[in-house]
């Protein structure tokens, strides 16, 4: 390759871009590498100056500890988070998609004003509902149950808004064909609109799931026992009770709790990346 060819190759032309991307990638990966690496150290090896990046004698002691403590139940918390987030996602999709269909396709008195009202409520942040909803959970005896994690946020205005946009793009002719075949309103919604909107439903589902899975505030206030804690709440408890005792254990907890998300991400990365711009949601 001559100098002239080299100059015109993309690598040479975008050399600065590559350097920038490598620096940024190092910035992103550095904390994760340190967490993984130091989680294989003993407490003595972590608490030294200068810090070590590579363990001299790698050990899985911290993983054994974090999985066997009486008050640390990562497996249970992970299960709780998955169950609660799945329940919440199903509830959101079941509640929001018929509402979105009504707004998108049906003529009824109050369609426009009701939709405008819902949009306006997006301006009112959810914090204002926290205390009354917490007291309602207490009165319903729902505190420390999955019900409290699933139902209060299920009427997701943003979900209705998003799905309405997608339902409106489904060609009307397809619905009219279904009408000629004798389909009622439910039949059109179920057999025509929903199957043609799987992309939107999946994307909304993924981000509703991730947002719930990673939420911290609401689970902190409505769960109190070891058995119903979710993963983020559990991690915050490990931090406050074990940080001073055995640091590698904390890092092992962070690593173990991030692994499932990374596995799911590696499978669905394309859908997730595309879904962000499709929905305008980020996963929290």
């Amino acid at each position: 390759m001559s100098i002239a060819q080299l100059r015109h190759s993309t690598f040479f032309r975008y050399f600065g871009v590559y350097v920038f991307l490598l620096v940024l990638s190092a910035f992103v990966l550095f904390p994760l590498v340190i967490a993984v690496s130091q989680s294989f150290m003993t407490n003595q090896e972590v608490n030294r100056w200068p810090p070590r990046v590579i363990p001299v004698e790698p050990t899985i002691e911290s993983y054994r500890l974090v999985l066997t403590q009486q008050d640390v139940r990562l497996d249970l918390w992970l299960r709780n988070s998955v169950v609660a987030a799945t329940g919440y996602t199903i509830a959101v999709l079941l509640i929001c998609s018929p509402a979105a269909y009504a707004f998108a396709r049906l003529n009824f008195p109050g369609n426009k004003p009701l939709f405008a009202f819902l949009l306006a409520t997006i301006m009112i942040p959810g914090q204002v509902t926290l205390i009354p909803n917490y007291l309602l959970m207490r009165d319903l005896k729902w505190l420390d149950t999955f019900n409290a994690l699933i139902f209060p946020g299920a009427a997701n205005v943003f979900g209705v808004f998003l799905l309405r946009q997608f339902f409106m793009q489904v060609p009307r002719e397809l619905e009219e064909a279904a009408v000629l075949d004798g389909a009622g309103y439910f039949g059109r919604f179920w057999h025509v609109i929903l199957p043609l909107s799987t992309n939107a439903l999946t994307a909304l589902g993924i981000f509703v799931f991730l947002g719930h899975f990673n939420d911290l505030f609401w689970p902190i206030i409505v769960t109190s026992s070891l058995q119903t804690r979710t993963l983020p709440v559990g991690l915050s408890i490990i931090q406050s009770s074990y940080a001073g005792q055995y640091r590698p254990m904390i890092l092992a907890g962070a690593v173990l709790s991030t692994l499932p998300v990374l596995i799911v991400y590696s499978i669905f990365q394309r859908r997730i990346i595309q879904g962000v711009t499709l929905t305008g949601m980020g996963g929290r």
Binding site: L24, S25, V28, L29, P31, L32, I34, A35, Q38, V46, N47, R48, W49, P51, L210, F213, N214, L216, L231, P232, V233, G234, L235, S236, I238, Q239, A243, R247, I250, L251, G253, A254, S257, T258, V261, L262, Y265, Q269, I272, I273, V276, G282, G283, R284
Partner: peptide, 27 residues
């Protein structure tokens, strides 16, 4: 793109545990 989006998918729990240690004044 895929790589740079990884942190966004982590829970604040895991992020907090890792960075609390990275910022440690002692070690």
């Amino acid at each position: 793109r895929v790589l740079l989006y990884i942190p966004q998918l982590m829970s604040v729990g895991a992020v907090g545990l890792i960075w609390n240690w990275l910022w440690s004044g002692q070690f």
